[in-house]
Design a protein around this nucleic acid. Structure first.
Length: 564
DNA sequence: GCCGTTTTCGGCCCGACTGTTTTCAGTCG
């Protein structure tokens, strides 16, 4: 893979060091911004001129080039030289910021976690000027959370919880909505933001902090409260504004931070001020009730939350060029569903009925091939038997077309797990790597795509959000080859995969590939994970025509049809 | 450290809550 992420990490690390030393905050922000831009850059940074990217100027471009040439950055070593190793990791502790960390380092000689715990235990931290018992206690609780590994969780896990809390709030107020990265459909979420609008903030805060899922209350003010819920130690914040501020607050709390910074700065150019209460000219509020109104004061159209990452959406909106993003209702079918013939839990009939209930025009049954023993992969005879059952079920169920498919293994030698004569009998073929993650994967995938019977490449990176790194692969080479061979890349919608993700999608689209959204469902409940796949697609700026299963069956430009 | 048709110097988004303070700094988002 490219070095974008490695350099981004170094820039963040330098930012931490500068922050610790109390350097100019704008310089620190410049490093942070560059780190973000690098992480989200849809391409290989070594193949472009970094200084031409917004947010990266002459100085940082030189550092990027230094890293690409030498594998390190002098400024990095320099920034860290007088800081004990590992000390900056403590910045991840909630309620412990750079000022306090520096303070305890200078005054008490704290150089690591154990020493920090010691000065809290023996009371010496609390005795410092400006500190006190409560601050010490907050940091102690922060350390607990830090140790529990409070980290971002996949959005698919957070959504049901958030929706339950939001529903509860809606019982006492008309307007309540998730905001933050969850509303933007980011693949993982950290803290959860929920916004509500009402004249009586107190009753909403009360409803919130007494919700059965709440384990502890971190903060509770007049318009804002913060709790930890009994689910992955998730922190949930609720903020209440009055109804006239609903739109402005929704924009503000949806973010992203980078998006907000840019629109506020645009507002400033127009002598306006934007905050969570509205858009102001002097003292006078000129907008704020709806999001549309807020954007309009800046000469922009409303934009979908999934785009709000400062990746060009503001410029596009100003020019009136926002894409018409694909929507959930555009999907006409799902290709990637496992039945109980392999490792799915439901039988074909149940799956087909569920798909028809979702309003699908077609549904693809897609079981594992024989080498995936652990997933009960089908040998050729079982595949025949399954296909016969599909025909039988089809006769009894009108109104939806059942497609015969397979998720065929790309074997370690690059061959497919079924011979062509078997693949030819199917309506579509999805090829996937399930073994040999470090073994020549780029070449094997390309070889698989050279077979004209392969329509789709499944979960192209192989990563899992729960921690698995994924294939050792040159992703861009694979994407380019997919575009050349007319093979669709999957946006796998399983909550732990989301593979491709938003940044990958943008890169792939730049090569000209098409996509399918596949749930990889192993039970009918998972059919609804299309919501997550659509979220990724929208974050990747995809429109309806980019996604094959947004076409009707008669018009779908599946590879085998285009090749005919 | 970045950026620019009001600027190549002097700006850089804005506010709530907490805990420690007699008016504010730190953290967070």
């Amino acid at each position: 893979m490219n070095k974008n992420g490695e350099i981004a990490d170094i820039f963040d690390n330098i930012a931490d060091a500068l922050e610790f030393k109390g350097e100019n905050v704008f310089k620190i922000n410049a490093y942070r911004k560059a780190a973000r831009v690098l992480r989200e850059f849809p391409g290989d940074i070594s193949k472009v001129k970094p200084a031409e990217i917004e947010g990266i100027g002459k100085g940082l471009a030189e550092k990027i080039e230094e890293y690409l040439a030498t594998g390190s950055i002098k400024k990095h070593a320099e920034a860290l030289s007088d800081i004990p190793e590992g000390l900056l990791d403590l910045l991840k502790i909630p309620s412990l910021g750079p000022k306090t960390l520096y303070y305890v380092y200078k005054e008490l000689g704290v150089k690591g976690l154990s020493e920090l715990e010691k000065v809290i235990e023996d009371g010496s931290l609390a005795q410092l000027d400006g500190m006190g018992e409560k601050k010490a206690e907050n940091i102690r609780r922060g350390i607990e959370l830090y140790k529990e590994g409070k980290s971002r969780i996949p959005i698919g896990l957070a959504l049901p919880v958030v929706s339950e809390i939001t529903s509860a709030l809606k019982k006492v107020t008309k307007k309540a909505s998730p905001a933050g990265s969850l509303r933007r459909m980011k693949e993982t979420v950290g803290d959860i933001d929920i916004l509500a609008a009402d004249d009586n903030a107190e009753k909403i805060i009360e409803k919130f902090v007494t919700h059965p899922l709440v384990r502890s209350v971190n903060a509770r003010g007049n318009t804002k409260a913060s709790v930890i819920v009994d689910f992955h130690n998730l922190q949930v914040d609720v903020r209440v504004v009055d109804e006239d501020s609903w739109g402005a607050a929704l924009v503000y709390f949806t973010g992203s931070k980078a998006h907000n910074v840019k629109i506020r700065s645009l507002a400033k150019d127009k002598n306006l001020k934007i905050n969570e209460y509205g858009v102001f000219r002097g003292e006078k509020r000129i907008a704020g009730k709806t999001e549309e109104e807020v954007y309009k004061t800046l000469g922009m159209k409303w934009m979908p939350p999934e785009l709000r990452e400062d990746r060009g959406e503001i410029e596009a909106s100003l020019k009136g060029n926002l894409p018409q993003l694909v929507e959930l209702k555009d999907l006409k079918g799902d290709f990637h569903i496992h039945s109980n013939y392999s490792d799915g839990t439901n039988d074909i009939r149940t799956i087909v009925l569920a798909a028809r209930d979702l309003g699908y025009e077609y549904v693809g049954i897609c079981d594992h091939s024989k080498t995936s023993r652990i997933a009960n992969g089908l040998d050729v005879n079982m595949l025949k038997k399954r296909n016969a059952e599909i025909d039988e079920v089809q006769e009894g169920i009108p109104g939806i077309r059942i497609l015969k498919g397979t998720e065929v293994d790309i074997l370690s030698d690059g061959n497919l797990d079924y011979p062509d004569i078997v693949l030819e009998q199917l309506d579509f073929v999805i090829a996937a790597v399930h073994q040999g993650f470090r073994k020549n994967v780029t070449h094997r995938m390309k070889q698989a795509m050279d077979n004209p019977l392969v329509d789709v490449l499944a979960h192209p990176t192989g990563r899992l959000l729960s921690g698995r790194e994924g294939y050792e692969i040159n992703l861009e080479e694979v994407m380019e080859h997919a575009a050349k061979r007319n093979v669709a890349l999957e946006i796998n919608a399983t909550y732990d995969r989301l593979d491709l993700n938003d940044v990958n999608i943008m890169t792939a689209k730049s090569f000209g590939t098409v996509f399918i959204i596949g749930t990889d469902a192993h039970n009918i409940r998972m059919l609804r994970d299309t919501e997550l796949g659509i979220g990724m697609a929208r974050r990747g700026w995809l429109v309806r025509k980019d996604i094959l299963n947004a076409y009707t069956w008669d018009n779908i430009p599946l590879r085998r049809r285009r090749n005919r």
